[in-house]
Design a protein around this nucleic acid. Structure first.
Length: 667
RNA sequence: GCCUGAGUAGCUCAGUCGGUAGAGCAACGCACUCGUAAUGCGUAGGUCAGGAGUUCGAUUCUCCUCUCAGGCUCCA
């Protein structure tokens, strides 16, 4: 047979004897590459290192420290997890074990419908280490559908996957398991363990080991609430002990920034049990931050031509029948209150029907359009008990909600202006890294015709593309009344949060019979654009808190400056400094010298106050202050009070953001 | 709503194989008068989430409820 010729990623070509494997290729390139290799890719398709080279393909060696390589490690570790569980729970059924961001999971059904407990994780991890030490090979086999069904006769979940592959009914599995070939592949580890899998895998289990099992959870088979709930184990795996440790450290960092923890530590808000789940109260400092957020928002909205409205929290049932909410989302609403005459009232889950009624309150002319109505509107949604989460998923919240009414001709321009406005305001709060997501018609829940949806979706797409930001498609993710664009923002530690949404709605004006008189003297239906910028004040508060790890920019800090006299005979001067700054509108606190200066500085640091001013003998004599700025090394002594005040006033007026949204860990 | 855990002082946590509890920090009092991340001593603080059951006796064991955490499902 002729030699096989392959191209390498650097463009060079090499010849090998027929039957040469990817592993042998790696070895021929260099021993270090061979050691780092976990898989290979042939023309971009990931394959095992044991796969023979194919003539004319481009071959790349996949190393453990690449994204694709980590996926291979994680997938292989998931197999080891399944093998360990089957050893410890003979007769367990195993379902699927895919790779997810930063790790993997595997779903099981244990004999006698038993459950994993947290303590089991340690036993399972120990068994996994044994399997790693055994250095078992991952041996690939191809089977027909019938052979596959026979192999997994005792494994109903595997059989279901194989049947779906055979029937080509499940696109996801078909792609994953290779339906195009009408075959399934398996990986054999030991006489006692074979798993259905497309692969590739590392050559042997000995290649693994830098993993941690994170938690156990219940998860529905196929993600379907109506199907059996399986036992899921989440784990993470990395190419080295160092990479694993770094990952665990990142998790700790996220935990340190958790807004629920910061909210308690900084005395911003709490969730009194007596009030109920998902119903927060804001304490004075949190209330102040919230007010500052809202004030700046109002200021920007006023400047952008929005008009402020106010609407009640409850309404007759008919309003939500007209809007369609009772048809589609009654489950998400609090149950109705019934009055004497049998009239039912609901807490409002949204503000839009109220704003439509304001539009409809009198005859409208095209000359009034676009009409932009804005409100900080409190809404109540009955979130299921298991989903309530801190300030990000609550049962009562305040939306910064606006509804824009415009003509069809104005629609594109309004969308563009709105998106520009939204991004500009978000940037002022310190979020700067964005991409856009376009959500299209949901399959089951939707009102309106295909044509209307198509037109609305296209308009949104055009607007989004004009922003020059990355646009991601979210198929079927729209609301029941229209498609939407959402702004996704990355925070300081790289997590993505869905921020503002802009939704087009042809339906609500129709349902409510909202009309305006056009230049042609005829009645027309306005286009309605729903728009929330923060989403909810509560959620935005949480995101900002986590983004800044509690160290809010000076303009948003509840206490901007704390003044400390060195001795108690400096307290009078500290008071004068405070009065001077307060006259500029600065929020100042003074703590008298009944504790050592070091202790009071520490307290102020723990409270993440942007500026600590220390004043002593020299300052009293010279009219100066010692400036200790949050996040900077050391302090500046003998700064003239006027100079500091001027600099601070400028920082606040410009809403300057901190250079880095990180701070020193306490202690 | 479902699965797995958890709830002990304001916070972080220890403890009780069933005999009603303890530390550090915080709070309060006294002393210390001090120049950039914790001065010392003392005092007070708990229906051991709530309810029911078993028991001579329950914070501890059982059941129910509430709340929280991590997932699943959901998220107009």
């Amino acid at each position: 047979m002729a030699a096989v010729t392959v191209r390498l990623p650097d463009g060079s070509t090499r010849e090998y004897a027929p039957g040469t494997t990817a592993r042998e290729l790696a070895e021929s390139v260099g021993p270090r590459l061979a050691r780092a290799a976990v898989a290979a890719s042939f023309d971009g398709d990931l394959v095992d290192l044991a796969r023979p080279l194919i003539d004319g393909t481009e071959v790349a060696v996949v190393t453990a420290d690449s994204a694709a390589g980590r996926d291979v490690l994680r997938h292989s570790t998931a197999h080891v997890l399944a093998q360990a569980v089957l050893r410890l729970w003979p007769g367990a059924r195993y379902a699927i074990g895919p790779v997810i961001e930063d790790g993997f999971y595997y779903d099981f059904e244990l004999p006698g419908r038993a459950h994993f407990s947290d303590d089991d994780l340690e036993r399972i991890a120990a068994e996994m280490r044994t399997i790693v030490a055994e250095d078992q090979p991952f041996v690939r086999h191809e089977h027909t559908i019938e052979e596959g069904l026979g192999l997994f006769a005792e494994q109903p979940f595997k059989r279901e996957i194989i049947e779906a592959v055979g029937a080509g009914t499940d696109e996801v599995d078909a792609a994953a398991e290779g339906a195009a070939t009408g075959q399934v592949s398996t990986y054999w580890n030991s006489p006692s363990f074979t798993d259905l899998c497309r692969g590739p895998h590392v050559p042997t289990t000995g290649r693994l080991g830098h993993f941690a099992l994170m938690r156990v959870a219940g998860a529905y088979w196929r993600g379907d609430e109506k199907r059996p709930q399986l036992q899921r184990i989440y784990g993470t795996a990395w190419e080295s002990e160092k990479a694993l440790a770094e990952h665990l450290h990142r998790l700790e960092e996220a935990e340190r920034r958790d807004h629920r923890k910061l909210g308690a530590e900084l005395d911003l808000f709490s969730f009194p049990e007596e009030i109920g789940s998902g119903l927060p109260v804001f304490h004075p400092k949190g209330g102040l931050v919230r007010r500052l957020m809202e004030e700046y928002s109002r200021q920007r909205h006023a400047a952008a031509g929005y008009e402020f409205v106010a609407t009640p929290h409850i309404s007759k049932a008919e309003l939500f029948e007209t809007s369609g909410h009772l048809d589609w989302f009654a489950d998400g609403m609090f149950p109705p209150m019934e009055l004497d005459g049998g009239q039912q009232y609901y807490l409002k889950p949204m503000n839009c029907p109220f704003h439509v009624l304001i539009f409809k309150s009198r005859q409208r002319s095209y000359r009034e359009l676009p009409l932009r109505l804005f409100e900080f509107g409190s809404v109540y949604r009955y979130e299921k008990s298991g989903v309530v989460h801190g300030l990000t998923r609550v049962r009562g919240m305040t939306q910064d909600d606006a509804h824009l009414f415009c003509t069809r001709e104005q629609m594109a321009g309004e969308l563009h202006e709105t998106l520009t406005f939204v991004l500009s305001v978000l940037r002022d709060y310190g979020l700067e890294d964005f991409y856009l997501e376009l959500s299209t018609r949901p399959e089951d829940k939707a009102v309106g015709t295909e044509a209307e949806w198509e037109e609305a979706t296209e308009t949104l797409r055009t607007t989004a593309l004009a922003m020059g930001l990355e646009l991601v498609l979210d198929e079927g993710g729209g609301a029941f009344y229209g498609p939407k664009i959402s702004v996704q923002a990355k925070d300081a530690i790289g997590r993505t949060h869905q921020m503002s949404t802009i939704q087009l709605d042809f339906q609500t004006p129709q349902r409510f019979g909202a009309e305006y008189i056009g230049a042609d003297n005829a009645r027309h239906q306005p286009i309605m654009i729903h728009r929330a910028l923060f989403g909810s004040v509560e959620r935005f508060f949480a995101i900002l808190l986590e983004h800044y790890a509690g160290a809010l920019p000076t303009w948003l800090s509840p206490e901007q400056v704390r003044i400390l006299g060195v001795r108690d005979d400096h307290d009078a001067y500290a008071g004068e400094v405070a009065d001077r700054l307060r006259s500029d509108g600065v929020r100042v606190g003074v703590v008298p010298a009944d504790e050592k200066i070091g202790a009071r500085i520490r307290r102020a640091k723990v409270e993440k106050i942007p500026y600590i001013l220390v004043v002593g003998d020299a300052d009293v004599a010279a009219g100066t202050v010692g400036v200790n700025r949050r996040g900077s090394e050391g302090d500046r002594r003998g700064v003239a009070l006027d100079a500091f005040a001027g600099e601070l006033a400028a920082e606040i007026a410009e809403r300057r953001l901190p250079e880095a949204a990180s701070d020193r860990p306490p202690g």
